[in-house]
């Protein structure tokens, strides 16, 4: 299994990358942890490969007045240990160990995972949960897309073939916020059968805002808005969570596949939704 021949371009600047992408059949390689297997299997045979690994503008993680901007080339391990992300978004370092294995996390990037858009991957779920904004650059300039609108179908996003993701902006959550992530897979490092993330804001012992996002049960990560809305205004305690938990699976119709039956997935959804909501509430309260 070897990739088919291609032309290799390694731009040093964003301008040069955009120029290189102006081609009939160009693909970007960042970490290559999903792309190269597909090229080895010859499921993907780009004529031109644009390697963005040397573009320094894609690497920084910086704090702004309103949040943290994470460069597209940030590797999973860097995100796991970065002090700014640990401080403002501890859920990222909680979720990163679930991303494949260390050797994959050393190389794979945040933008690569977002653009690959696997329905059970961790970054797409986190991006939606944390209200991330995906920064995209193309020949006609730059644009920003809310994560919730970025993912369109399995392995399909809003990005055009001539564009690249330059970074992701995560707006700072309020101080009284708790977040939690958990997932179940057959073995450590496998893709999640179901993954769940929760974000809970409380004020005066009431839920002010709640976000619950699930992965692995739909074409893209999915927000469970019925549950989110039902919790807002309720007393911030476990009973309130238990009372709305059945809403988690109300409109879900996950598929059966080799890894798990739909029924098992629904039962995992309950277990994981309870776990992450309870944990996020505890963290918001402490």
């Amino acid at each position: 299994m070897k990739p088919a021949p291609f032309e290799y371009v390694r731009p040093d600047t964003l301008d040069a990358a955009v120029q290189a992408l102006n081609h009939e059949d160009a693909r970007i390689i960042a970490g290559g942890q999903s792309l190269v297997p597909m090229m080895n299997f010859r499921l993907v045979q780009p004529e031109r490969l644009v390697d963005i690994n040397r573009i320094e503008a894609l690497t920084p993680i910086v704090q702004t007045d309103t949040g943290v901007r994470v460069g597209a080339l940030t590797r999973h391990v860097e995100a796991e240990y970065h002090p700014l992300l640990r401080e403002h978004f501890p859920i990222i370092s909680e979720a990163m160990p679930y991303v494949a294995h260390l050797a994959i996390r050393n190389r794979g990037t945040i933008a690569g995972s977002l653009c690959h858009a696997d329905p059970s991957a961790e970054w797409p779920l986190l991006a939606i949960l944390l209200n991330g904004e995906i920064e995209i650059l193309g020949g006609s300039g730059s644009r920003t897309v809310p994560a919730e609108e970025f993912f369109m179908a399995p392995l399909t996003t809003d990005i055009a073939e001539t564009e690249l993701v330059t970074g992701v902006f995560f707006p700072s959550p309020p101080a009284s916020c708790g977040m939690a992530f958990d997932e179940v897979s057959w073995r450590a490092g496998d893709f999640a059968i179901v993954a769940a993330g929760a974000l809970v804001y409380i004020e005066k012992n009431r839920f002010v805002n709640v976000r619950l996002v699930l992965g692995g049960v739909f074409d893209t990560p999915i927000r469970i808005t019925a549950l989110e809305e039902a919790l807002v205004g309720q007393s911030a305690n476990q009973d309130a969570i238990e009372a709305v938990l059945s809403l988690t699976t109300k409109d879900l119709e996950p598929n059966d596949d080799l890894h798990a039956s739909a029924e098992y997935r629904l039962s995992l959804v309950h277990v994981l939704a309870r776990r992450v909501l309870t944990c996020a509430l505890e963290r918001a309260s402490s």
Binding site: Q33, D51, V77, A103, I104, N106
Partner: peptide, 27 residues
Amino acid sequence: CEHGVCGACTILLNGVSVRSCLLLAIQ
């Protein structure tokens, strides 16, 4: 496996472990 699953081809690249079957020589 040649697709990043088995780990037999693991090497250290700039000090950290990576799969050498998911990396191009040119890189």
